[in-house]
Amino acid sequence: MIDHSLLRPELTRPEVLAGLATAREYATASVCVRPADVALAVAGLRGSGVAVGTVVGFPHGGATTATKERETAELVALGAAEIDMVIDVGRLRDGDVAYVEEQVAAVVVAADGRPVKVILENWYLSDEQKVAGCAASERAGAAYVKTSTGFAGGGATAADIALMRRSVSPSMGVKAAGGVRTLDALLTLRDLGATRFGATTTAAMLDDLARRLASRDG
């Protein structure tokens, strides 16, 4: 359920490679890397079963639809298997839901069958806007709605996960990202309906899980 996140702007190539090794060791669902690291991640994770994801319009979402389409197509060509796109947050706050839906739909087409996770950046949104963003994303064919980039003022909250889960159909995923740093936090959000998690503390959380399972079985 974890997308191991390698998105910090200061990461060096050795640090990215170390992150890829962590994802391989712990058999995460995916890594989520910066666009410039997609080729490196594809090569580094070949044969591991760990998918390579990346971001589009990140972190602010203000690029044009054509730019997001081109970015998506390029990253797919490089081997990206999942796309996390940031919506135009200002347009959603304006009430221009049609624009948001059309942009998500364009990225879904450019992703050519690969899952698209739509980052709403909830920190800036009212509950009404979050619900509208969820509905637009589902109508546009996205696979997931996602709480945040991790670069705004706040990340995933229990209230937001519960709201997003109620706002989409059971077939759509909900991704919690930003501030999910402990196993207990992850489990709480899972129980509220999150189905995927963006995390940087992957090893610590899964080591904690292993200790708990060993103690229970012992």
Rank of each mutant, 00 (worst) to 15 (best):
D96Q: 09
G44V: 09
G178H: 06
R93F: 02
N122L: 00
A177W: 07
T188G: 14
T147Y: 00
E10H: 14
V52S: 02
A142Y: 14
R114D: 05
M164W: 07
K175L: 07
V89S: 04
T72I: 03
G150Y: 00
Q103G: 05
A29V: 12
R93S: 04
E138W: 00
R46G: 06
V42T: 03
A158C: 09
L183V: 04
Q103M: 15
S126I: 01
L92G: 08
G90S: 13
E128F: 00
Y144I: 02
T72M: 02
V116C: 15
A18E: 15
S171R: 13
A214L: 14
S171L: 06
V89Y: 04
K117A: 03
S148I: 01
L40H: 01
A177L: 08
V31L: 14
E25F: 00
K175F: 08
L125P: 11
R46M: 02
A63I: 04
L183W: 05
V108D: 04
D191V: 00
G154H: 13
E25H: 03
T147L: 01
L186M: 15
A66W: 07
R196T: 09
K130V: 13
I161T: 02
C134R: 05
A18C: 01
L206E: 03
H4D: 10
S169H: 10
S169L: 08
D96G: 03
A106F: 07
S215P: 00
D127Q: 14
L75P: 06
R13Q: 10
R91P: 02
H60P: 00
L92A: 11
D160M: 10
L20T: 02
A162Y: 01
E15P: 12
A152P: 07
V168T: 13
P14Q: 08
L183T: 02
G47E: 05
G179R: 11
P170H: 13
G193H: 12
Y26Q: 11
C134A: 06
L75W: 05
A51Y: 02
T54H: 09
A21N: 07
L183M: 02
I119T: 12
V33T: 06
L213P: 00
R211A: 13
L213A: 11
A63D: 15
D96Y: 05
G173W: 10
M172Q: 06
D191Q: 10
S48C: 12
P170V: 12
V118S: 04
A36K: 14
G150N: 01
D208E: 15
G113R: 12
V56E: 05
I2F: 06
P170M: 12
